[in-house]
Design a binder for these strands. Structure first.
Length: 519
RNA sequence: GCCGCGUUGGUCAAUCGGUUAAGACGCAUCCCUUUCACGGAUGAAUGACGGGUUCGAUUCCCGUACGCGGUACCA
């Protein structure tokens, strides 16, 4: 029993999301976070955010904060991160710089890696001299490393001298000539590669920073990561990572891998990019992102009017489903049902129409109180100030089924707050006549006399006058709507009249009468 | 070029050898509603191709085609 408990504790699930802070957070990135989060929560494990900022040239200030804010908005907070802290700090690779060199040197000592002194120009020269029709991109591999400037081809004393002289160099992995590396991917099953086809990846760069290949292995090991999920684009370099786990002597603690399918552009093929969103008119980033260098601005799902619940829901279903046919899930439900073996192998084209449907579903089913802060924000952005929250709550309940995006609440409910400035008179003009004009003129009097300003009373007054005048109620409802709303949309007219009050209703009728007369 | 991974309606997808091949989005028609929606009903639309294995293949195997990813001192 004791043993069992120990085993259970030692295999506690730990996963990580490891983005590089180079720009806005792509929807595919959020999905990777989600699957990590869901898997961790499902198994009672921990979710770590690690920042992969080993490329100083691509570092973008603000990107890390942005990523954290995205996770917060989605409700996918990490247990450990640069700001949350944790037992394995630091969580920024740039702050772990010294750690990596030691392991790289260890690999050199054991012959699994070597120093390489080739300059960028020399590498370029190598590529162009060996470039041919059947080999358009020559690799620094077992066939070519013997022809390059490295500790395999140079004498020991020369290598020592070069290093002592401070000549810039990198450390590259020394891959076997012909070995099969295979592993079991949680999504794809058995995957294997031959080392002959992969190059001697740089492990440690000339500036002392590790490349992703070294850093991901060292950090996953040190942070006790049990399951490593990443995009499918990493599959080809998986053998390098697996060999590294082996060469470093950590094979027993290597995480289980899962390579997630890509999210594809809706038209054509290929990975979905920010450009596709710009081109097709939908967001790709989770939140607004402004690149501090180019000042390039990109709208996010949040600002576009998506609810985080919907965003998370739609992302979960993009590449996974539980087989039941249900599509609307809360985070809690997703956590309970998620499993990696139901993740698809093939990439999924992003469908913005379906994304909007998810949001619409969430808005329709959300309690008005949940929507209140967001709706108030939308109204305020359109210069509608809200004094009475309970009034807005009632408005939300009346119009939410008509709102696909949060931003739709503006045009769907503006008439509850402001007198419409322009009326769509064209909708009633063709059938407008003197009888109707008289009806509305008299209607104002009847309404003024009402003691109980309820929708039912208004409707009764409206209908009995119509009967007296011998006009079909249906013929009168549209004009009434146009006067109150301004257009052919919105909830039941009598409800609207009841909401905006007697004075405002009469005022709008008179204004409408005037417009219909002059036009 | 080479290596790897994929491929069920327009899109997301179920099926774990035997089904009339679910369901959802979108689309169309109808009902409800004398607005717009919501809701309800109906419909059109799918296994890339060729070989095997099998009594039986969408499902398993092998090819081919196509697509994607990788092929950096980027992640």
């Amino acid at each position: 029993m004791k043993l069992f408990i120990f085993a259970a504790m030692s295999t506690k699930v730990r996963v990580r999301f490891a983005p590089s802070p180079t720009g806005g957070l792509h929807l595919g990135g959020v999905r990777t976070v989600l699957y990590n989060y869901l898997f961790a929560r499902h198994h009672g494990g921990e979710f770590v955010l690690r920042i992969e900022d080993t490329d100083q040239a691509r570092f973008v200030p603000g990107a890390e904060e942005y990523i954290l804010e995205c996770l917060r908005w989605c409700g996918l907070e990490p247990d450990e991160s640069p700001v949350h802290g944790g037992p394995f700090a630091p969580y920024r690779q740039s702050e772990r710089k010294e750690i990596y060199r030691e392991y790289a040197e260890k690999l050199v000592a054991s012959g699994r890696a070597y120093y390489a002194f080739d300059t960028p120009e020399e590498l370029e020269a190598m590529r162009s001299t060996y470039k041919s029709e059947e080999n358009p991109s020559p690799q620094y591999d077992h066939r070519l490393r013997g022809k390059m400037k490295n500790s395999l081809t140079l004498g020991e004393s020369e290598v020592k001298k070069l290093i002592a002289d401070g000549v810039p160099h990198v450390i590259r992995i020394n891959l076997p000539e012909n070995e099969t590396v295979s592993f079991t991917d949680m999504i794809r099953g058995e995957v294997s590669f031959n080392t002959a086809t992969v190059d001697d990846k740089v492990l440690l760069k000339h500036d002392g920073m590790p490349t992703y290949h070294l850093a991901v292995v060292v950090d996953d090991y040190q942070m006790k990561i049990t399951h490593a999920f990443r995009g499918e684009e990493w599959l080809p370099s998986a053998p390098v990572h697996i060999l590294l786990w082996d060469y470093l002597g950590w094979k027993e603690s290597m995480p289980q891998w899962a390579h997630l399918p890509l999210i594809l552009k809706p038209d054509g093929n290929g990975k979905l990019s920010k450009r596709d969103g710009d081109r097709l008119g939908f967001p790709v980033f989770a939140m607004n992102w402004k690149d501090p260098r180019s000042n390039d601005f990109t709208q996010g799902f949040r600002e576009r009017g998506f609810l985080p619940e919907a965003f998370v829901n739609l992302l979960a279903l993009l590449g996974w489903n539980d087989g039941s046919g249900t599509e609307i899930f809360t985070l809690e439900e997703l956590t309970a049902r998620f499993s990696m073996d139901r993740v698809h192998k093939g990439g999924a084209k992003f469908d913005y129409e379906k994304a909007k449907w998810f949001n619409h579903e969430w808005i329709k089913h959300a309690p008005a109180e949940r929507l209140l802060p967001d709706v108030k924000k939308v109204l305020e952005q359109n210069n509608i100030s809200v004094a009475d929250d309970s009034y807005v709550v009632r408005v939300i309940d009346m119009v939410k089924e008509r709102c696909t995006l949060l931003t739709d609440f503006y045009e769907q409910s503006a008439f509850f707050f402001n007198t419409p400035s322009t009326l769509e008179t064209g909708a009633v003009l063709p059938k407008w006549n003197a009888d109707k004009e008289v009806f509305f003129r008299e209607l104002t009097g009847r309404l003024d006399a009402l003691t109980d300003w309820s929708a039912a009373e208004i409707e009764t007054a409206f209908k009995s006058l119509a009967a007296e005048k011998n006009i079909k109620v249906g013929e009168l409802q549209l004009p009434f709507r146009i006067m109150l709303v301004g257009g052919k949309f919105g909830p039941a007219v009598f409800e609207i009249a009841s909401m905006i009050g007697a004075g405002e209703t009469v005022k709008r009728i008179n204004a409408g009468l005037q417009q219909l007369a002059v036009s």
